[in-house]
């Protein structure tokens, strides 16, 4: 009886829990990002080497961090989905992957835009940019597989397997790309990595990192709520949640 009831209650409970979190996450993300970015843009001193172009760091580094972080999170939910067969975890893949892909795109784009004044070219086969590009392909692969099947459950499980295969490969790809880069270009490009940052720059960066973490959480919350609704659209609780009130006749 409980085993039968359990999965039915799960979606609704998770939906409500996420609903309780969402406004707090979104609100704090907005506040933290505003503080971090305004501080970074207006008050942090400009860099003695790169001038003001370094201010891209306040979005580039956080988005790069959480593009990787989101992939790891997705792989963990994929493992949970495969081992314990929890449907909410399967849907979390569909919720995390687009957010991670957009973060990867942002990291890639800001990296390229930063590269233009620094290297004189929009695209340099820099190790970090290259591995971000590959990460974007991996995200697109997971999403494409998730939505390729007519049966949503099969798609979710197939995407879970792929996400796990991917997460085993990500460190190998990362290492191989860095190694390849050192082979072909020498250690010339370390402009993204500053050995030590002045605290006036580091503190706003840390605040933006926190802001991106909260933003990632909020976006995943929003999409997971949508995914739960989409999958359980025929259940009465969704109608009670979204539908018009029971009409009197």
């Amino acid at each position: 009886m409980w085993k039968w009831l359990h999965p039915y209650a799960k979606g609704e409970a998770t939906y409500r829990l996420l609903g309780a979190w969402l406004p707090w996450l979104a609100g704090s993300a907005l506040v933290t990002l505003t503080v971090g970015l305004v501080w970074g843009m207006l008050f942090a001193p400009s860099d003695y080497q790169q001038g003001d172009s370094y201010r891209i760091i306040f979005i580039h580094v956080p988005s790069a961090m959480f593009s990787m972080g989101a992939y790891t999170a997705m792989a963990i939910t994929a493992l949970i989905a495969l081992v314990w067969q929890i449907r909410t975890a399967e849907w979390a893949i569909a919720a995390i992957a687009p957010v991670g892909a957009v973060l990867t795109f942002i990291a890639l784009f800001t990296g390229a835009v930063w590269g233009k004044p620094m290297w004189g070219t929009w695209w340099e086969w820099d190790a970090r940019l290259t591995s971000q590009l590959i990460l974007l392909f991996l995200y697109i692969g997971v999403l494409a597989l998730y939505y390729a099947f007519t049966d949503a459950r099969t798609g979710a499980k197939a995407a879970s397997v792929l996400a796990l295969v991917g997460v085993v490969n990500v460190p190998i790809i990362h290492f191989s790309v860095y190694w390849w880069n050192s082979l072909h270009q020498g250690a010339t490009i370390t402009k993204f990595e500053k050995p030590s940052m002045a605290p006036e720059m580091l503190i706003p960066l840390l605040i933006s990192i926190l802001g991106f973490a909260l933003l990632t959480g909020a976006l995943v919350c929003q999409r997971l709520r949508n995914e739960i609704l989409k999958q359980e659209i025929h259940r009465p609780w969704v109608h009670a949640q979204l539908g018009v009130a029971e009409q009197e006749r």
Binding site: D52, V102, F105, I106, F109, W114, K116, P117
Partner: peptide, 13 residues
Amino acid sequence: YVWLAYGVTLLAL
């Protein structure tokens, strides 16, 4: 460059 990066980020989000 800076505003392009920030603008596209804002647009994507």
